[in-house]
């Protein structure tokens, strides 16, 4: 029993992390048709900011690292938009994707060459993140519980935002028809900004959890989780918010299942198996689980 609950929580926390990231990708994509390949670098920037704070300000409590990390993630997302993505806002999707690819390389290399961080640097997170609690005789890691809970709260808050506020409604409307939204007098820049703030916030939350798990930063730390998030978003149907969440959770479940099922000898192939499984799903449903039947040319270029 202990084991089952443990594994379920494993799946929920990993899946939750992917869902947070995939949701950020999906929001930016649905609002402005941009595939943000630099999403992983938001995590990296959050991690390095926490590292810098730890080194230079030596805060009395590791607590402070968390809000600063999240704030840095939001700032990074907004800066990317302002500096790199705005000039290509109305360009074909491929142009935006390659721009984001360039941004990703710039940030990685900034940390490699300017900061000189070629090997991982340790960063502490609050102790209680690594602790365990016992509920009904079952040992549960606080981090995992928190991860599942925060994901759930973030999703509910996002849902409320999208249904109940003007900016949320505008974002949903802009996903289909940006020009008509502007005809309502709503500023395009504000809608896009909101999308990036939300995607940065979600990435910041994920970054905190990633940091808590890894305990160290390096310039490439954002890549792997965001790659998974991309796959999750495609699995769910790219641009669909529901799809991003379901895809993220499904990917978490698949990873944990393969972890359990695969014999040690081929455990290293786990990701390959997960991706192949996703590929199989996409053969049956090319538009993803929740995607619309893909309109050729739709936000493609």
């Amino acid at each position: 029993m202990d084991y089952v609950i443990q594994q379920v929580l494993n799946a929920a926390s990993i899946g939750g992390e992917y869902a947070l990231l995939a949701l950020g990708l999906a929001i930016v994509f649905s609002v402005m048709g941009l595939v943000n390949f630099a999403h992983g670098e938001i995590i990296t920037i959050a991690g390095f900011t926490m590292y810098a704070l730890f080194i230079f300000a030596s805060p009395t409590s590791a607590w402070w690292l968390l809000p600063i990390g999240i704030a840095a993630a939001i700032a990074a997302a907004v800066t990317f938009e302002r500096v790199a993505f705005r000039p290509v806002r109305n360009a074909p999707a491929t142009t935006g994707l390659l721009t984001a690819f360039g941004v990703s390389i710039v940030v990685k290399n900034f940390f490699v060459s300017v900061v000189g961080a070629t090997r991982p640097r340790a960063v502490p997170t609050p102790d209680w993140l690594g602790s365990q609690i016992v509920i009904g005789g079952v040992h549960i890691q606080t981090l995992q519980l928190l991860e599942a809970a925060v994901t759930a709260i973030a999703l509910i808050a996002l849902l409320a935002l999208l249904r109940g506020t003007n900016i949320g409604l505008a974002m949903r409307a802009a996903a289909k028809d940006f020009n008509t939204v502007r005809l309502m007098g709503i500023r395009a820049n504000q809608v896009v900004l909101a999308a990036f703030v939300i995607s940065g916030l979600l990435a910041g939350l994920a970054a905190v959890f990633i940091m808590a798990r890894r305990g160290a930063v390096d310039p490439f730390m954002g890549f792997s989780p965001v790659l998974k998030a991309f796959v999750a978003a495609v699995l769910g149907g790219f641009g669909s918010l529901t799809g991003a969440v379901v895809g993220g959770l499904a990917l978490g479940v698949a990873e944990v299942l393969f972890q359990i099922v695969l014999p040690d000898k081929i455990a290293g192939y786990r990701d390959a198996f997960v991706f192949l499984l996703v590929g199989a799903v996409l053969i049956l449903r090319p538009q993803g689980l929740f995607g619309r039947k893909y309109q050729f040319g739709d936000k493609e270029g």
Binding site: N179, L183, G185
Partner: peptide
């Protein structure tokens, strides 16, 4: 001026083909 500012100044268009926000 940008569209959003022109609308704020009091001129707007009801677009061809209606373009209502179908999901809302």
């Amino acid at each position: 001026k940008r569209t959003e500012d022109i609308v704020r100044l009091g001129a707007t268009v009801t677009p061809e083909g209606r373009k209502i926000f179908g999901d809302l």
